[in-house]
Design a protein around this nucleic acid. Structure first.
Lengths: 349, 349
DNA sequence: TTGTAAGCGTTATCAT
DNA sequence: ATGATAACGCTTACAA
C-alpha cells in the first residue's frame, strides 16, 4: 500500500485514473472539471492523505504567499503586539508568517533579511526601531533595492524612512511627538527637574526620537535640561532599575522620570519603591508604549499609547497592496498620552 | 544588464564561465572546487546580488529546514516566552521559524497543522494546552501519523500525550503538581475557603490539570470543596476581573483565590482592589505561570514558576534529534512555587 | 576538478 | 473537459 514517501499529484492521478493536470485543476479550482472526475480526485486525495507541496507550487507559481517579520524578541510586550498585528493581517490575506529575532544586534538583522530573501518572502517587515548610522542606512537602502528586484518589499514598522528613492513601505508612530506631549504634561504639572532614563543608544531611532521630544518640550518652554538627568540604559527592566538607583544615589534631585519604554518604567518604579520613594507623591513616572499591563502596575502608569496592532496590520496591508497605493508609502500613526496614577503635581517644599 | 527577474544559478554560472553544477558546489561547500573557480563564482554571486532560492533547494534537497509553531496568540506572556524558546533553539539548529495563531479555536488549530504540513515543516510545535475531547484527540492522533509519514514531527509543548503508539514528541510541565503545591501552600496558611477562578474549560488540558491539582490538595487533607467557589472563566484578564466581582457580589466568603493563570490573577487583583478588599490582608491571591511581570504587580504575586523558555527549546531539540532519543519522547519539566507578597496567613476573626 | 543530464512536485501551455 | 509536455531553480548521480 503505502510506500515510504509522501504521495504526489501523480499518485493521486493514478489512484483516480486521471492525469496530473486534472488533479491540479481540481485542487486549484481554477478550471472547469466534470463533477464525476472531481469527486473521484477528492476521494483519492482523502484516501492517500495527500497534501500539496507548497515549495513545488511556489517554484512554478511564483509566489510563496509568505510574509516575514523580524523583531528584537518575541517577549517584549510591544513587539509581541505589533507582531500580533502582522500575523493577523497576513493570515487575513492568506499568507503564512515567518518570524525571526535579532536580539538587538543590527548585524544579525541584516543577515536575517538576507535569509528571508532566500525564502522568497513577499514582504519583510522590520518591527521596531533600528540603527541610524550612515553605514547602516546605506546597507539598508541596498537591501531595499535587492528585495525590490526580487519582487519583495521591505517594510519599516516603527522606524523612520531611509531615503526618498528607496523602495520601502514605512509605517511609523510619532515617537518624538509622543515624548514631547508626555514631557510637556509633566512640565505643566510644575516639574522642573525631569530625568530621562534609557538614553543609552542615541543612534537608535526610537531612543533618538523620544529623547528629542523630551528635549524639545523643555526648549519650547525656554527651559534648560540638566545633562546629569539624562542617563544611559537600554530597553530592559533591569536597566530602568539600575539607572534609577544611580540617580538616587547621586542625589540627582529629580521630581519626575520619563522612561524610554514602559518596560523600563517598570524597573524605575521598582527601584523607587525599594528606595522608599513614593510614586507619585515624591516622584512622578511616565513610560512609553502603553503595554496592556501598564494599567495594572503599582501605581498604574501614565504613558503614551501606541496603536500597536494597527501598526502591524497596516504594515502588511500596505506592503501586499503596494500597487494600489502611491509608490512612496509612508504612514504616520498618531499617539496620545494616557494619564493614570503615576503622575501628580509637583509638591513645592 | 539586469533583466526583470532574479538571477539564478545559470546566470551566475554564465557570468563566472562555469557550469551550474560548479556554482552549486561552491555555494553548498559540499565538494572540492579549485580556488580560482571558487573566487570567480563568489565574485559573480556578489556582482549579480544572487541569493539561492530556498524553495527550489528544498524541493530537491528534501528538507525545508523549517520549524513551525502554533500558538494561541503572540501576546500571552507565557506563549511568548515559550515561543521565544522555540525560536532560539530553531535558530541555533539552523532552522527558520513559521508561526501561526489560532486564538483558542481548536478547529483552526487543526487547519494550521494541515497548512504546516503543506509547508513541509520539519516539526510542528503546538504550544500550550489543548482540547481533551475524544474526537479531538482522535483527530490529533491521525495528524501525528500524517506528519510522521511526511517525515515531519508533531510536538506537544505544554500538553499531555495523546496515546501510546502515537508518533509525537511531548514536553510538558507539571500542571497538576504545581496547582497541588500552590493550593497546599494556601491550605497550610490556614485558608479554608479557597476559590478557583477560571474553570470554564474543563476539557482543556491546562485548566483540567490545574483544577485537579486544586481539588487533590483539598482531598489529601480530607477537606471538601464548596462547588460555589469553583467559578468559570477563560484565560483573559477580563475573565478574572468579572468572576471575582461575581464572587464578591454573591458573598462567597473566600479568604484566598487560585487563578488559573497569572493573567487571570491580574484581573482578580484589580477586582479586589476596586472593591476595597486588601491583598493579602483580607484575601490571598495566587496565579500560575510566573510571567516576568508578576513580580511587579500590586502586590507582587505568589505563583507557580514554569520553565517557559526551556520548554520551547527542549521541544525543538527533541523533535529535530528524535533519532537519537527513544521513540516515545516524553519530557516532564518541573515547576515550583514562588512565594511573594500576595499571600498571607488567614486572619481568624 | 569540472560538466552533462535527470529529476524533485507542481502548474501553464498547447493540444485534443 | 482532459491529457501530454515543458518549465520553474536547484542538486545529485554519472561521465569525462
Amino acid at each position: 500500500m503505502s510506500s515510504g514517501r509522501q504521495p504526489t499529484v501523480k499518485d493521486v492521478a493514478a489512484s483516480a485514473g486521471v492525469s496530473a493536470t486534472t488533479v491540479s485543476r481540481v485542487l486549484g479550482g481554477t478550471y472547469p472539471v466534470s463533477a464525476s472526475v472531481r469527486s473521484r480526485v477528492l476521494r483519492a486525495v482523502r484516501d492517500l492523505d495527500y497534501v500539496i507541496n507548497a515549495q513545488a507550487r511556489a517554484l512554478v507559481g511564483g509566489s510563496t504567499r509568505t510574509v516575514a517579520f523580524i523583531v528584537r524578541d518575541l517577549v517584549g510586550p510591544l513587539f509581541a503586539y505589533i507582531g500580533q498585528g502582522v500575523e493577523l493581517q497576513a493570515t487575513a490575506e492568506g499568507r503564512v508568517c515567518l518570524v525571526c529575532t535579532h536580539h538587538g544586534d543590527p548585524e544579525r538583522e541584516l543577515e536575517l533579511i538576507e535569509l528571508m530573501r532566500q525564502q522568497q518572502a513577499e514582504a519583510v517587515v522590520l518591527v521596531g526601531g533600528g540603527l541610524r548610522t550612515e553605514e547602516h542606512v546605506r546597507r539598508m537602502a541596498e537591501i531595499a533595492h535587492s528585495l525590490d528586484r526580487a519582487g519583495s518589499r521591505l517594510v519599516l514598522c516603527g522606524r523612520p524612512p531611509i531615503g526618498a528613492d528607496v523602495p520601502a513601505t514605512v509605517v511609523e508612530y510619532d515617537n518624538e511627538g509622543g515624548a514631547f506631549a508626555v514631557t510637556d504634561y509633566l512640565l505643566s504639572l510644575g516639574h522642573e527637574r525631569i530625568a530621562f532614563v534609557g538614553a543609552g543608544e542615541p543612534e537608535h531611532t526610537t531612543t533618538g526620537a523620544r529623547l528629542n521630544g523630551f528635549l524639545n518640550a523643555h526648549a519650547t518652554r525656554g527651559l534648560d535640561v540638566d545633562q546629569e538627568l539624562i542617563v544611559d540604559g537600554n530597553y530592559d527592566r533591569e536597566s530602568g532599575y539600575r539607572q534609577t538607583r544611580l540617580l538616587l544615589e547621586r542625589k540627582a534631585g529629580m521630581t519626575a522620570v520619563v522612561a524610554v519604554t514602559d518596560v523600563v518604567a517598570i524597573g524605575v518604579l521598582a527601584a523607587l519603591r525599594d528606595a522608599g520613594v513614593r510614586v507619585p507623591e515624591d516622584v512622578s513616572v511616565v513610560g512609553y508604549d502603553d503595554i496592556p499591563l501598564s494599567a495594572d502596575l503599582n501605581p498604574p502608569l501614565t504613558t503614551v499609547h501606541l496603536p500597536y496592532e494597527e501598526l502591524g496590520r497596516s504594515a502588511v496591508r500596505l506592503a501586499l497592496h503596494r500597487d494600489e497605493y502611491a509608490l512612496d508609502q509612508h504612514l504616520l500613526l498618531g499617539t496620545h498620552v494616557v494619564i493614570r496614577s503615576s503622575t501628580a503635581k509637583r509638591k513645592h517644599d
